[in-house]
Design a protein around this nucleic acid. Structure first.
Length: 493
RNA sequence: GGCGGCAUAGCCAAGUGGCUAAGGCAACGGUCUGCAAAACCGUUAUUCACCGGUUCGAAUCCGGUUGCCGCCUCCA
């Protein structure tokens, strides 16, 4: 089966066909840098990160562009509020954004262009739109004449009459049509400005993406992505600008991710119901956040709550428990024992072959519009098979077992990497997880270990009653114990 | 008002015409254990919001009803 993707433009899944064989250009709309990123931004970033990584996994040479909008009303407002220039704001939040994305394991884009570095290109594009009769000057403000562009509304499935019937179009005397949007805004006192044929001003929001995508990916490129709230007006306007100027399709496939919700409502700045990525990373391992997001399809909404994150954490713990078992089983067996390939007895071969079909099943799921939820289901299946297999041949694994486990682990890690999962060392994962949980619940490690030592002494004397009381006290603090032959390990539930 | 999406077990979530409706979390029973925990095995939706229709056959297609959500204003 070949890759199929849901295209917002046609509202159906289509066979994916790159413009140039073996190469893919993706443009994903980035953020306006005036504040910290929240979980909603993380969801979008992770969705396109996985798309990016999966396409590379398939062997495509991917050019991934994600911009920064670094001039905009909100930024100017914020700069005034903090008494600095816009660069003071944008530099700070670009840095914060990059830190957040790095922490989440989101790969940096091939190029991360900024709007303010592309003003000349925007002026050129607006000039072209004037030549085509699609732009008009209204006293220093330049607007796009939407009526002049056939097909305005084709992405969002609207037409101008419907939109005009809507209650919330702002009245602006300067506009010829209420739906016309700004390409260039005359600067007011104290605002940043650039010289242009229409006077001092700054670009409108939409023009930058048309310019930067064309600069780095050409007039027509493969995939354009973003959150579903960008479909209208942002992406609709990009189409009007770019296609109005070139007469060619802007992008072949339009992909939009669904929202993160809180209590069934969109997580957003205006509702104030957001959690920043920084805050969430204090409480959860980054891969728990990724798993939370990837367990749903990227176009569906996901509901964010303490409980859903807790579920994701438990699921992630299951994966790492298996990775830890694999690590421990193989600790004394470096390298692969390749001579066992082809010599496996029936029992070993069955496990081996099941795990070796994992990439196939993974690809089948991901080829269906990046169905990460189904892919993750297959990973859990593999984990169950391996746990069962390891439970049988515990202590000293036979050489053929080692061969199967080495190959299985490679496969698991290779596929996990596409989703940005299993990248941590299992011991490190559980250490940091425990430290996080201990801090969240206000517990004290020395105290817990003191209790465990007291219980060890009680157990040595076969004082089961006392040992159980101690354990019960710990269980009430959500600390669970596991007795292994010579020691006791603990974790937080 | 216009446009669009969603409704699957206690919770989360795959599945878009036909083998036994994935998987995770939770719960319960068993193996293991001094007892537990983890892991493993087993159980938990004759049924997919509701009503009607198409079909040999539908969670899946069509029509209607109800409920929830998004966009139409900055927003991932």
């Amino acid at each position: 089966m070949a890759l199929r993707v849901y295209n917002t433009l046609t509202r159906q899944k289509e066979a994916f066909q790159p413009i140039e064989s073996g190469k893919i250009g993706i443009y994903a709309c980035g953020i306006t840098v005036y504040d910290l990123c929240h979980i909603g931004h993380a969801r979008s970033a992770i969705a396109f990160d996985v798309i990016n990584k999966y396409l590379q996994y398939l062997g495509f040479d991917v050019t991934f562009i994600k911009n920064f909008t670094d001039v905009d009303d909100k930024i100017i407002e914020r700069a005034h509020a903090e008494g600095c220039d816009i660069k003071g704001i944008t530099e700070k939040y670009i840095e914060a954004h990059n830190r957040d994305m790095d922490a989440l394991g989101v790969a940096r884009p091939t190029i991360a262009p900024r709007a303010t570095e592309n003003i000349e290109g925007m002026i050129r594009l607006i000039t072209t739109l004037f030549e085509k009769g699609l732009a008009y000057d209204a006293g220093g403000d330049v607007y796009y004449a939407v009526e002049k562009f056939k097909g305005y509304g084709k992405l969002s499935g609207r037409n101008l009459e419907d939109m005009l019937a809507g209650a919330r179009v702002d009245i602006n005397e300067k506009k010829r049509n209420p739906m016309d949007f700004a390409l260039w805004k005359a600067s007011k006192e104290g605002e940043p400005w650039w010289d242009s044929p229409w006077g001092k001003g700054r670009p409108g929001w939409h023009i930058e993406c048309s310019v930067m995508s064309q600069r780095y990916l050409g007039e027509t490129f493969d995939i354009h992505g973003g959150g579903e709230d960008l479909i209208f007006p942002h992406h609709e306007n990009e189409i009007a600008q770019s296609e109005g100027a070139t007469g060619k399709p802007l992008a072949r496939y339009w992909l939009h991710n669904g929202f993160v919700r809180v209590n069934s409502e969109k997580m957003s700045k205006s509702l104030g119901n957001f959690s920043t990525i920084q805050d969430m990373l204090m409480d959860y391992h980054p891969e728990v956040l990724r798993l939370f997001v990837l367990q749903s399809h990227y176009r569906s909404p996901v509901d964010f709550s303490e409980e859903s994150l807790r579920d994701a954490r438990m699921g992630m713990g299951r994966f790492y428990a298996t990775l830890k078992s694999l690590k421990d089983s193989l600790a004394r067996h470096e390298g692969t024992i390749d001579e066992w390939k082809g010599l496996l007895t029936e029992e070993h071969r069955q496990v081996f072959e099941k795990i070796m079909t994992l990439p196939e099943r993974f690809t089948e799921a991901m080829d269906d519009d990046f169905n990460t939820a189904r892919a993750i289901g297959h990973l859990y299946d593999a984990v169950r098979i391996l746990n069962s297999y390891m439970a049988e041949g515990q202590n000293e694994p036979a050489p053929e077992t080692v061969y199967v486990l080495v190959r299985s682990r490679e496969t698991l890690l290779r596929i996990g990497a596409v989703l940005g999962l299993f990248l941590d060392d299992p011991d490190h994962y559980f250490d940091t997880d425990r430290n996080r949980e201990v801090r969240k619940r206000g517990l004290n490690i020395e105290e817990i270990e003191g209790f465990i030592e007291a219980r060890r002494l009680a157990r040595a004397q076969k004082d089961w009653k006392k040992a159980d009381e101690i354990r019960q006290a710990l269980v009430e603090k959500k600390v669970s114990l596991k007795d292994i032959s010579d020691r006791t390990v603990w974790k937080i539930e």
